[in-house]
Amino acid sequence: MTEQTVETGAKKKPAMLQHEIEAKRLGLYMSLPAQLLLAFIVAFPFLMQVYISLTWWGPLDGTLWTLAYESMNWFGQYGEIFQDGRFWGSIGRTFAILGIAVPIEFLLGLGLAMLFVQKFPGRPIFYSIMLTPMMIVPAVTGLMFFLLFQGTGPINDMLGLPQNYSWLQDINRSMITIIIADVWQWTPLMFLILLAGILGVPEDQLRMASILGAGKWTSFVRIVLPKMKTVMIIALVIRVVESFKIFDTVYIMTRGGPGVATETISLYIYKMTFADLEWSYVAAMGLFILVALSLLAVLGMWQMSAAQKRQKAMMSAES
């Protein structure tokens, strides 16, 4: 806002007061150690990664990473990414897992949350039981399902399947086991978040809906769900971002196999880093994914603000 738009007689905004200046300075001094620490932990490795990604350097070169500039080739590694079939395959597989697991978790979580809204005897106990899978270390979950899905294991036994019916070594069925493990582990999180969302719907509005003639289903669809929009989006975003990074469970259950049948992006990066030692390639891959996901996020936010602008325009047109 410039001085011209202020009405007559207004002078410049007064300079910051002494006590305000002192308060800001104190704040700066107090946060300095934390800021330096953050800089070291976050900024430094990040810059290192960017630097390396622009070169052909690897640990087998024998030189120190600081001398990586000797094999600088700018965007060569990024070019490699586009031609790397295995990379895109792993991206595809990762999306496949999330695309199936997350919706299932969401619907199951929502269904369970709806059951838990009303009080029933033993609700607190069941609530604790519901949350346990989420609290188990993912690697342990992986081990658990590894044992369960063994040819000689309990699942084949219960389903009456022969002992050579393989889950974890089958190209198609291994994906199914991963998805089942993910759903089992993370549905409770969806349940937790969505239950909080349902309980956050103002009770008076629900009572009003009922007085106006809405049955339970109508109230749910027209009052509860719309009011849960933000919570649902948060739950989905959290889960999508996390499941994109899925690693421990897959590693323990199948190591990404058989072959690359269950190789997710994080597993591919892991193998490239520790098995093939292609460190500069891995650096490039990491940054590529970061940029791609950020662009998607920006796109999403741009859509939201466009929707808000449309609404505001509509309001001022009508008033």
Binding site: P202, M208, S210, I211, G213, I223, K229
Partner: peptide, 21 residues
């Protein structure tokens, strides 16, 4: 009889407007 079948009109003290509509 459940509320939705009683056919009454009601105004809450804090209005309980469906704020998302």
């Amino acid at each position: 009889l459940p509320a939705r079948q009683r056919g009454v009109g009601f105004v809450f003290q804090n209005y309980a407007i469906f704020t998302h509509m």
